[in-house]
Amino acid sequence: MIAILDYGMGNLYSIKNAFEKVGAEARIVTDGKVMREADGIVIPGVGAFDSAMKKIAPLRDDIIDTVRSGTPFMGICIGMQVLFEKSEEGNSEGLGIIRGNVVELPENVLVPQIGWNELEIKKHISLLNGINDGDFFYFVHSYYCVPKDEPAVCATVEYGKQVTAIAASDNVCGLQFHPEKSGPKGLTILENFVGSVKC
């Protein structure tokens, strides 16, 4: 079972629908205990960093423990950003699961970035099976993640500068774009994640 963490940051039905479309059993979960029983965990969400951190705080220990236990973990959009240590958007401390910070998009482009942008793959991971350089994904964001360790960056998009699109470290990955709104290619990524859960 894949647990989609509901911590009060936006509508989660699209992501649930998308996981069901690729044949996974997905459940929207609010309780840390239920989350600990899941085979894979997804932190979705849209919104601001501080309010996300505030709402996710009661689940911090459950999240850290399940990450340490090796459970496959996926953060999407703001759910990716909370995996990092700090954000320019707020004052709260992040979960610190991936080393690095979240910074604002450059000033020479329209912020937020809203739309379909082309992926540049930097490092091939199993999540990217069936995905090619130049495939488009749907982005909605004003801030982006800068991992401290360069090898954590698996894919970027060009938006004023190279912006991290996918970061990963061990059993944890973060996607800045919305795979559930990125057409068949987005579903391929979710399917790959489900595949890693079953192994």
Binding site: S14, N17, Y138, E180, G183
Partner: peptide, 8 residues
């Protein structure tokens, strides 16, 4: 629609 369509 949301069950079948995975674009905005």
């Amino acid at each position: 629609t949301a069950e079948r369509v995975f674009v905005p």
